[in-house]
């Protein structure tokens, strides 16, 4: 490289970024040539001022950047426990299937319920019949019973002579 041959613009940028990237000859020229050295220094100053300018122009960051929280992996259930859970589930299913018929209403159970309803309804109807026949309070029914006893033939025979007695 001749003394009058200055380094190129790319070499000057390289000199600012990484001086070691230049060939020894170019490095020697930069050290010897005042013009090239001055140009390299000016370029360095421009780059530094550009960085400061960018910092001043860009608005400050509003949000806080946070790294995602590292997931903690649960340890897998041990095989013994898995087997126990599986067995319990299977046993429950078997019990459910076996007892299913007992939960169904069997025809005989249905009839039994029907008879129970009939009996319960008969009680209601007895009460309704009693009320329809004699609406007076139940506590007064004793008077009626006594009166009914008076209609009984044996009862009447006991207190008064009947037609047969005169025959």
């Amino acid at each position: 490289m001749k003394k009058d041959d200055h380094v190129t613009q790319e070499d000057l940028i390289m000199a600012v970024i990484d001086k070691g990237g230049l060939t020894p000859e170019k490095q020697a020229h930069l050290a010897a040539c005042q013009a090239c050295r001055s140009e390299a220094e000016r370029l360095g100053c421009d780059l530094a001022s550009l960085g400061d300018l960018a910092k001043a122009v860009v608005p400050p960051m509003q949000t806080t950047i946070m790294l995602p929280e590292a997931k903690t992996l649960k340890p897998a259930r041990p095989w013994g426990l898995r087997l126990a859970y599986g067995s319990a589930l299977a046993a429950a299913l078997v019990v459910l299937i076996l007892t299913m018929p007992f939960f169904r209403v069997s025809p005989s159970g249905k009839m039994e319920a029907l008879y129970q309803d009939m009996l319960s309804d008969a009680r209601l109807m007895i009460e309704i019949d009693r009320m329809a026949k004699n609406p007076l309070p139940e506590s007064w029914a004793a008077f009626d019973d006594e009166f009914d006893a008076g209609e009984d033939d044996d009862f009447m025979d006991g207190i008064a002579p009947g037609g047969e007695d005169f025959s």
Binding site: A122, M125, I126, D129
Partner: peptide, 12 residues
């Protein structure tokens, strides 16, 4: 009398 008279008891 409930079954014997007017009343019909239950869902016969």
């Amino acid at each position: 009398q409930a079954l014997a008279q007017e009343s019909f008891a239950g869902k016969w």
